[in-house]
Design a protein around this nucleic acid. Sequence first.
DNA 1: AAAGTAGACTAACGATCGTTAGTTTACTTG
DNA 2: CAAGTAAACTAACGATCGTTAGTCTACTTT
Lengths: 190, 190
Amino acid sequence: MKKETRKEQIIQISAKLFKDKGYAAVSMRDIAKELDIKAASLYNHIESKQDILKIIIISLAEEFTKRMTVIYSSNENNISKLHQIVALHVDIAYRNQYEMASLNNNWMHLENGITYYLELRNSYEDNFRAIINNGVQSGELINSNPEVTLFSMLSTLRHLYLWIPKMEEINPKELSDNLSKVLINGILNK
Amino acid sequence: MKKETRKEQIIQISAKLFKDKGYAAVSMRDIAKELDIKAASLYNHIESKQDILKIIIISLAEEFTKRMTVIYSSNENNISKLHQIVALHVDIAYRNQYEMASLNNNWMHLENGITYYLELRNSYEDNFRAIINNGVQSGELINSNPEVTLFSMLSTLRHLYLWIPKMEEINPKELSDNLSKVLINGILNK
DNA sequence: AAAGTAGACTAACGATCGTTAGTTTACTTG
DNA sequence: CAAGTAAACTAACGATCGTTAGTCTACTTT
């Protein structure tokens, strides 16, 4: 029952095309052409174009939310939790460069799974926000607007997939360490 | 000869729709419906759908590039230049929330202006990178990977338009100050 | 009042879209 | 070897796409 290779190929090729042109601008014929088959043949493996998008986005969103819950619930201090969040994003971004683009830019085209997706995203963001607020309360973090801190970190982490291909000389561990320093300690030499 | 109001309306409504659904998913009939006219009537004011996208993106990219050149060429120190870059992005993001989305997510759909757009973007990024590198060399900035610093700041600044509507209680000056602190000084309480 | 014009309209074009139905091919299983 | 099946194919559907051509209306300018 491990015959899902063709379906997985379709998902992967679709994610790549969605990254380059966006969901709406990619046709079933585009996807089929990449696999050297006709568009109608895709339907032997997937239910619809929507089906493809849903699989890409929901599986990734679930991984983010699950792993964020683990970090949030751990006994570490809040600074350490922020380091783990950075490492989480670097890990996922390295392994899912194309899928990340759909998560960021194509979720609004979800027709059936959009409510569930937004629940996952809200859960993720709420945990992130709580860690920052706890860090401020405990005195670990400076008392600046927590929403700005959240926004700044999230914007950087969510778009890692755009820069990883440009930074070929750096490995995931190095990137994670560098990013933690820049995001948390700042860039000032003092 | 100031009769461009209708054209400007079309551009503005289009930018708004492009932000919500992306260029490819917005039809000329969608744009027309927002203005309570028929799609064919749009062509009394604009040349094509491409024309709309080009106007939105190129005018914004030119403003970024021009103002970045001014900052780069000034006599201030590099930290001060970074503060000015933050203020530049906050200023533009507040006044062009919809257009920023096209700049970030729809530039790949430009058919005629894409080379020019990429030149503008590269010029902008090169100046930004040079300021960071100069700051490292002069000892103003920590000697971490400059590409990571650039990426982190740019990711945050480019997606301000997504968060500004969510932070209604903050004004541009406050946002700019907060963001400068977070991006440059870090978030650690030490 | 006449002429010109800005800006809307209807109707239609060829292209492309996602998807379905029915068929064929090639391999695997009994 | 026969039967079954996975996965490709051709052909076509109705819908929608960007755009053009030609027309009408209402206002402005002379």
